[in-house]
Amino acid sequence: MTGLLDVVGAVLVLLGALLALAAAIGLLRLPDVLSRMHAATKPQTAGLVLVVVGAALLLRTSVDTWMLVLVGAFQLITAPVTAHLVGRLAYRSGGVREDLLHRDDLADREDDPAR
């Protein structure tokens, strides 16, 4: 049983690390700030959650597990907020590759205070 838990935990940590790697590559390769925020929220969050779950399976002591639960929960709560704030700032300060936008509904917004 412990052997199985160890294997599952190790696999989860590995998967999480792979997702985090993909997120890091996305941060470098994606064309503009808004696209990069996608990489910084989704694979990054999912990767961290996988690492946390895997680590909890490997450690199996309650003191560390509760801390890991908190780490995962706060990541899930805060990552979208960060993405929203950075994305909003990036758009208003022109951090968007407009040639890569199929459509831009925000450009039509007339009463945008930033304009």
């Binding site: 997702l19 993909a22 590559i25 996305g26 994606l30 996608h38 990489a39 989704k42 694979p43 990767g47």
Partner: peptide, 9 residues
């Protein structure tokens, strides 16, 4: 996550 990871790499 898988989608964005793929779009990244």
């Amino acid at each position: 996550s898988v989608q964005v990871a793929w779009q990244s790499v």
